[in-house]
Design a binder for these strands. Structure first.
Lengths: 335, 335
DNA sequence: CTGTTAGCGCGTTCAG
DNA sequence: CTGAACGCGCTAACAG
């Protein structure tokens, strides 16, 4: 099932088979030859050898995406968008989980480097110098997805300030004035930008943010829970909670329920990120919808273009920041 | 940064470099040569070209795992176990989502075939003949993970009958006699085997399963919700619900809450699958713990061994079926 | 329109 | 202990 085999069966040269099977349109072969070759290939079940092809062409037709945590369902929509774009481009996608800076991470990255034409990065803390060093080292095109590292590669981002502001606007429109911000991991720029957006929006409404009204929820369930506990611990609770991610919101719900708080009667909550799960929590969560799928598509496309020779540029993907209202917010009541 | 480059810098033949860098121990080279080569490699930042190596050796040092749905957090622990095993073996893992039988799935599969030495399959409905055909076609070692197709390849499974029985035993021990089974997709053998286990366990306790006490929840949130609605719709509710997966349990919670049922006061619930999420639902869920990570490891190891020449055998991974009691079950009360 | 030829980078005999 | 030479399967000139 190699080119020579097919050529032998078809009674032509292997280069003819190679061209015929690939270009198809380009060369107008004699119908007879064409038929013979196609028949032989079919009969033998011929498949090009991806490795030989990669070796010859110096390109892999495959890219990788580095994700922090496969458990994080806040990110699957992005993955799906990336998959789609890759599919359309006929490129294989390699998904790799690279959690914390474990030592074996280096090996995984090293193995990856030789197998792909470029890499998408969905994992980046400002301090992750090891990752940055690796990216420099491999000299492959790389694009950060919904993350960015200062002074580093290209990024495809949402307007996160806008997203955070959307939460504030929604809550203020309901009459809230004492709003707490359950932030994502503040060592990531995504969380930083949302913080800025939150603060600006509050200021725009003439509201201040007293001490104790922000907590870092670390982008995970447990962090969200701990942060929520802190935010509602004081004598005077905020009347509403704006949460940076759905994953953290899950933890928050646990904390609020444990404390016997009823949503939205005692406290309103809203979160960024949309996922099937949001419709099935208790209560269902009002969310800021982000088109993560589109973000994934755009990031993948940018990377693929870069691989093809067109350097990618930083890109902000417009997202409607639409509110999906599932009733977890309501006007505040006097405590 | 190829072998020749290193050889040139080190002033030796490229074959020397090749041996030295790989065997290391095998050949006892002159320390001097050794040092020169290593230094040159280091200096040039040499990396073997995975493609050339694969072409030469006829092996990719990489395997793929086919998953139905990356959104399904019930499966990430398996993935993690697989990743670990691959890491230890120095093998690259290719994760690929192959949802329904979309037409583009074929392309994705075809591209995969040339890049891996074998494939793990975590997606299998008895009726998925296209997938089966592909597996036959590629003639690569393949192992099914927590799934099996009748008469097909090798499987690495849990004792699912035992797992379902664990739910029944726990509930019966609490005093329940009227237990409903919210099953997984009954076209998958996993669900079928759990059904058998559930029924046997009930029979062993001298309990029967009246009509309307089982519903197919399709392995997803929405299916779980719909099935739960059906199960508690009748005049006389069951006193307890045994759910086949955490994902479905999420949907179930939504349904029960919407109906105003309180857990475990009005109805007890228990589910198979452990995940961080289970500790943070309302209420937290009592679960049957499965060592999915170990399952993943074993499956990956079996496949890797097969790739190395030792055909894999069907394998049942012992799992303790331990109950993690988070209080979502309680003795039944008269209605 | 089709065959010939020359590598892509590497691992492996076989000599020496 | 090290070098020389071949070929894995494929593509892209270049002939014819």
């Amino acid at each position: 099932m190699t080119l020579v085999d097919v050529a032998k069966v078809a009674g032509v040269d292997l280069s003819t088979v190679s061209r015929l099977l690939r270009d198809d349109r380009a060369a107008s072969y004699r119908p007879e030859t064409r038929a013979r070759v196609l028949a032989a290939a079919e009969q033998l079940g011929y498949r090009v050898n991806a490795q030989a092809r990669a070796l010859r062409l110096g390109r892999q037709d495959s890219i990788a995406i580095l994700v922090p945590d496969l458990d994080n369902f806040g990110f699957t929509a992005v993955l799906r968008g990336v998959q789609e774009a890759c599919e359309e481009a006929g490129v294989t996608l390699l998904i790799s989980e690279i959690g914390s800076s474990a030592p074996e991470r280096t090996d995984r990255l090293a193995a990856l480097a030789g197998r792909v034409d470029g890499v998408l990065v969905a994992h980046a803390q400002d301090t992750d110098t090891a990752l940055q060093a690796w990216l420099d080292d491999i000299r492959l095109p790389s694009v950060f997805v919904q993350r960015s590292i200062p002074g580093a590669s290209v990024s495809v981002l949402f307007d996160e300030e806008n997203n955070a502001a959307a939460m504030v606007d929604h809550l203020v429109a309901m009459g809230h004035r004492d709003i707490a911000h359950l932030s994502g991991d503040l060592s990531t720029d995504t969380a930083k930008r949302r913080k800025v957006g939150f603060d600006s929006a509050m200021a725009a409404h003439g509201l201040s943010i007293p001490r104790g009204r922000r907590a870092d929820g670390g982008w995970n369930i447990e962090g969200g829970r701990a942060a929520a506990e802190k935010l509602v611990a004081g004598r005077k609770r905020p009347t509403a909670l704006a949460v940076d991610s759905l994953v953290q919101a899950i933890g928050m719900l646990g904390a609020l329920h444990a404390k016997g708080l009823s949503i939205p009667d005692d406290i309103s909550v809203i979160t960024i990120d949309e996922h099937p799960l949001a419709a099935h929590t208790t209560p269902p969560l009002t969310t800021v919808y982000l088109d993560q799928r589109e973000l994934g598509r755009r990031a993948a496309t940018a990377l693929l273009d870069w691989v093809d020779g067109t350097p990618a540029q930083n890109l902000i993907v417009e997202s409607p920041s639409d509110i999906i209202d599932r009733g977890s917010t309501a006007p505040p009541v006097a405590q």
